[in-house]
Each structure stands twice: as C-alpha cells, then as structure tokens.
Computed example of a mutant assay.
Amino acid sequence: MTAPIENRSLRSRAAILNAFAGLLFRDGFENVSVQSIVAGAGIARSTFYEHFSSKDDVLRASMAQFLEVFASCLGGDDHVPELARVLDHFWDNRRLVDPIFTGSARRIVALSLSEMIESQLRRSSESLLLPPRLAAIHLAEAQLALVENWLRGRAFASVDDMATALCQTSRASARALRRAD
C-alpha cells in the first residue's frame, strides 16, 4: 500500500510544481495564487497544503536545485562544470528572467540562497568577521547580481567564464570574511 501512496504523492507534488512554473512564467509571481496553482494542478486545496505551506514555498522548491549549486561554490570542490550546466539552462531561458529576478520572487530567491550559504558557513570551524547570516546575505546577493545582470545582457561572458568567475569570487569573498588567526 505504501508505493501507490508515495506515487500519488510524487505525482501531486510534480503537478503543483509544473502548474506553478507555467503560471509564474505566464502571469508573474505576484499574480500567482494558491487557488490558481490548485486549479492548474487539478488537485484539492488540502492536497496543496500537504506538500507546501504557500506559493513562496513552491518557489523555493522550484529553485532549490539551482540554488544549491550556487551555494556549493563556497566549498573547496570544483563545482564549475555543475554550475556551468545551471548557467547554460538559465541562459537558454533568459527571456524568463523577470518572473524570478523582480519583486517578491527576487527576495524569496535571495533569502533561500542566503539560507543555503549560511548553513555552509556555520558548518565551517573558521570564525567570521560578520555574523553568518549577514555574510551569507552578502555572498548570495553578489552571486545573484552577477547572474541577473549577465542574463539581462548588460555585458556578455561565456557560460564557462561565468561559472568559473562565480565560483572563484564566491570562494574569495568567503575567505575575505574569515577572521585571520
């Protein structure tokens, strides 16, 4: 009995995320409502709330896989190829930049990324010059500003150069925020 329930749950979650994405890119985040997501997904309102607490929560879930790659740049491992794949996807869909990088959607994305980065900073044993939350906000905003301006065509760089620059500047900024012992 567990497998059919799990499958139904996965299908409902996928339907919610798909409906949300369609509405987000058609109407903009501000004009998406839980009711419109429910209608688009063909589910009951109670089913929505079994999976998500709000439309903000759906946006967070929709962007999590991408933001985790951005946050991983602070680590010592080479995440450039993985980040290049994400940036390539963003570049291919750059006409959709406004729904993600404007208004409250932008604030939610920045908050989500900063929370992921803060978690990484707190796992480190190194002491920071700033409280981890403030350092994480700084790093997240720097990453998002670079990506947003690139996607908006304010200056061109190749996907590979962007990925390399994002990882290198993120690590360098994180190092600069650490206390010298």
Results as ranks from 00 to 15, higher is better:
Ser112Gln: 13
Leu59Ala: 01
Phe25Glu: 10
Gly153Gln: 09
Glu68Asp: 14
Trp91Ala: 03
Arg152Cys: 12
Ser127Leu: 15
Pro81Glu: 07
Leu121Ile: 00
Val38Ala: 05
Ile43Gln: 02
Ser127Trp: 10
Ala41Phe: 02
Ser114Gln: 09
Arg154Met: 13
Ala44Asp: 04
Thr47Ile: 08
His79Gly: 04
Asp92Cys: 08
Ala71Asn: 11
Val69Ser: 11
Gln120Ala: 11
Arg123Ala: 11
Ala71Ser: 15
Gly76Val: 01
His138Cys: 09
Gly42Gln: 05
Phe25Tyr: 15
Ser33Gly: 08
Ala44Glu: 09
Arg60Lys: 15
Phe29Gln: 00
Lys55Tyr: 03
Phe48Thr: 02
Leu129Lys: 13
Ala61Glu: 06
Asp27Tyr: 10
Arg60Met: 13
Ser114Ile: 00
Val147Tyr: 07
Glu118Asp: 06
His89Asn: 08
Val86Thr: 01
Trp91Gln: 10
Phe48Val: 00
Ile137His: 10
His79Ala: 09
Trp150Glu: 03
His51Glu: 04
Gln120Glu: 13
Ser125Thr: 08
Ile108Asp: 08
Ala105Trp: 05
Gln143Cys: 15
Val32Gln: 01
Tyr49Lys: 11
Asn31Leu: 10
Leu96Glu: 08
Met63Lys: 12
Ser112Tyr: 03
Pro132Met: 06
His51Trp: 04
Arg45Ile: 08
Leu83Met: 10
Leu59Ser: 12
Asp57Tyr: 06
Cys73His: 00
Leu134Ala: 11
Arg152Gln: 15
Ala44Gly: 07
Gly103Cys: 15
Gly28His: 02
Phe101Leu: 02
Gly76Arg: 08
Ser46Ile: 12
Ser36Tyr: 06
Ala39Pro: 02
Asp98Glu: 13
Leu139Gly: 03
Ser62Lys: 09
Val34Asp: 01
Ile100Lys: 02
Tyr49Arg: 04
Gln35Pro: 01
Val147Cys: 06
Leu87Pro: 00
Pro132Gln: 07
His79Ile: 02
Gln120Gly: 14
Glu68Gln: 15
Met63His: 13
Ser104Pro: 15
Ala64Val: 05
Glu126Ile: 11
Glu118Asn: 02
Asp77Phe: 11
Thr47His: 04
Arg60Thr: 14
Leu151Ser: 02
Ala84Cys: 08
Ser112Lys: 09
Ala39Val: 07
Arg122Val: 07
Gly103Ala: 15
Trp150Ile: 03
Arg122Ser: 12
Ala71Gln: 15
Glu50Ala: 11
Ala61His: 09
Tyr49Phe: 14
Leu24Pro: 01
Val34Lys: 05
Leu130Tyr: 12
Gln143Ser: 15
Phe25Met: 12
Val97Gly: 06
Pro81Lys: 00
Val109Asp: 04
Val38Lys: 01
Arg94Glu: 04
Asn149His: 14
Phe66Pro: 03
Leu129Ser: 06
Arg133Thr: 09
Leu111Cys: 07
Pro131Met: 06
Ile117Cys: 06
Leu24Asn: 05
Gly75Ile: 00
Arg123Asn: 10
Ile43Pro: 02
Arg60His: 14
Gln143Glu: 15
Leu111Pro: 00
Gln65Lys: 15
Arg107Gln: 14
Leu96Gln: 13
Ser125Gln: 13
Asn31Gln: 13
Val38Ser: 02
Ser127His: 14
Asp57Phe: 07
Cys73Gln: 05
Ala110Thr: 03
